[in-house]
Write a protein that binds this DNA or RNA. Structure first.
Lengths: 149, 149
DNA sequence: CGGATTCGTAACATTTGTTGTTACATGAAA
DNA sequence: TTTCATGTAACAACAAATGTTACGAATCCG
């Protein structure tokens, strides 16, 4: 299956936004992500609804953060994207009648659930400011948002 | 996209095999799994190549275990299936030129890698005999294979 | 006001992976 | 030799993510 790259894509976009003070248009971001402006809007829509970013129309419009980077976790982003499916592997039947299949689903499902919990915990404790620091944009990001927030 | 259910499907099939002493044909298993015999053969092929099961043709043929259930881990099965992709979420670009994207990929990739390691560890420590015990087929399974192994 | 800019969104095409199906060859047992 | 069963290739059906086009709505600037 094709992988769902919305999480990585949106993080990439947000980090480019963090490098700038001014709003970035969907076309700007589409260039950064090597994709289409419509795809950018589609992906960012969830973040806007979640109050993570804001969009403005017309001249001087575009995308800006609605909160300081230190107050946005990867888990916030993940949820704002509609909680994309984490695992590609899964049961053949959700509610099987066969007790054997029920047993298999329970054992494998528990393992997947635990792994997912680990992942979510990691996402929860990682902030956008950490990500920005990772490539040396920490200072810029702080100047751009923490002061105003 | 559709989920990859081969792991669950093959475990379901193996547990039905564990309930019986006699070989089960692909048609038998296809009935259990509510699918097609060709799909069963296709999926089981990896397990046969890995020496986990054996297939026999002609009258009285079908699928049997090649090792005791206690000596087969879920990780063995997972590898035998060609290590299906675990995560549906992933990076947009594998080897990006953009340093920002590299940073994002590293952070998200590390989190995914850790979660995958947790999952693999769980798979490694879970044997088919554990699975069989989970639905009360432990006695049967032991009678069928541990004695002969 | 009018034009340029930019987001919002629906509709459709493209791509890719999984699963289902058909057809036929190969091997083994009765 | 007939029947049963696997091995495998080829193709169809289906689903999900992404790319593309088109058009509407809001905003800014002159």
């Amino acid at each position: 299956m094709k992988k769902n790259s919305r999480l990585s894509a949106v993080l990439h976009a947000l980090m480019h936004m963090a490098e700038r003070d001014a709003p970035m248009t969907s076309d700007d971001l589409a260039l950064c992500l090597d994709t289409n402006a419509v795809v950018v809007r589609r992906t960012m829509a969830g973040l806007r609804d979640a109050g993570i970013v804001q969009s403005g129309r017309g001249h001087g419009g575009g995308w800006v953060f609605a909160r300081p980077l230190a107050e946005i976790s990867l888990l916030d982003i993940y949820h704002a994207l509609g909680e994309p499916i984490v695992f590609q592997i899964g049961p053949a039947t959700e509610s099987p009648g066969c007790v054997v299949e029920q047993s298999v689903n329970r054992v494998v499902g528990d393992a997947l659930k635990d792994a997912e919990a680990i992942l979510m915990a990691r996402f929860a404790q990682t902030r956008l400011s950490d990500l920005a620091a990772d490539f040396g944009a920490a200072a810029k990001a702080r100047r751009a948002l923490t002061d105003t927030g």
